[in-house]
């Protein structure tokens, strides 16, 4: 297992024509140009302001702003949560559905629809226990990266660990692959299988970009169905 992370770089080779200087940014209807305290960013603004858009679009806008003017430490604060359980569950499922929309072009429509059904089922208010934690967005982001790379034919069963990490399980006969998707692009996996009727277990933890590679000695297509 290795933790080496390569930082991709990008290069410009082709000559292009000059880019015109920036014009003045329109303010209408951007009356919500800054919604963060201490945000002094005057960088790229959009005529239709991001305040009104989806989480993914707002994320893009924040990233564009951060490229040119990082947010001040004072602006990095969380608002206290006063939401009901139902509202928290709605927010959680809405967030992961919007995150899924960001990679919808890399997923089969049917796969996406069934995933949404699983997410709704996992966050059913009628079966929700007070000590449960809604899904963590960072865990779901790791899951999406893995799924878009593996493109498994077989769908996993999904569950939530304490703390809101997403758990996926693929079963083939008595053999089972269980994966916990962690924050910051990390995954933890357990393989339980039988060889000559003797149980064997293998455990690993790696970055999501090395996940598929780390499973190769265990013939993962048994679970993924490729």
């Amino acid at each position: 297992m290795t933790n080496t992370t390569k930082i991709p770089i990008i290069v410009v080779k082709a000559p292009i024509k000059a880019i015109r200087s920036l014009g003045s940014c329109t303010t209408a209807p951007g009356i919500f140009a800054s919604t963060k305290l201490g945000d002094t960013s005057f960088a790229v603004r959009n005529p239709i302001d991001g305040y009104t858009f989806s989480e993914s679009t707002r994320l893009y806008q924040e990233q564009v702003k951060e490229l040119t003017s990082p947010p001040s430490p004072a602006s990095l604060q969380n608002l206290p949560s006063q939401k009901s359980i139902e509202e928290q569950l709605f927010d959680a499922t809405a967030s992961v559905k919007i995150m899924t929309s960001r990679v919808a072009m890399h997923l089969e429509r049917e796969w996406r629809e069934k995933l949404f059904n699983q997410m709704d089922s996992l966050h059913d208010p009628l079966e929700w226990m007070e000590e449960d934690t809604p899904i963590e967005k960072s865990s779901f982001a790791t899951f999406l990266k893995a799924i878009c790379q593996i493109k498994p034919k077989n769908r996993p069963g999904l569950g939530l660990a304490h703390g809101g990490n997403l758990i996926a399980a693929w079963t083939s006969g008595s053999n089972r692959l269980t994966v916990e998707f962690l924050a910051k692009d990390r995954v933890r996996w357990i393989i339980s299988r039988f060889r000559d009727e003797e149980p064997e277990q293998y455990v690993g933890q790696t970055v999501v970009s090395h996940f598929l590679e780390s499973l190769q000695p265990y013939q993962p297509n048994e679970w993924f169905g490729k």
Partner: peptide
């Protein structure tokens, strides 16, 4: 108005 920027990739590689 066109904005273009590098953003975090939601998929690997």
């Amino acid at each position: 108005t066109i904005n273009s920027a590098v953003v975090e990739a939601p998929i690997l590689d």
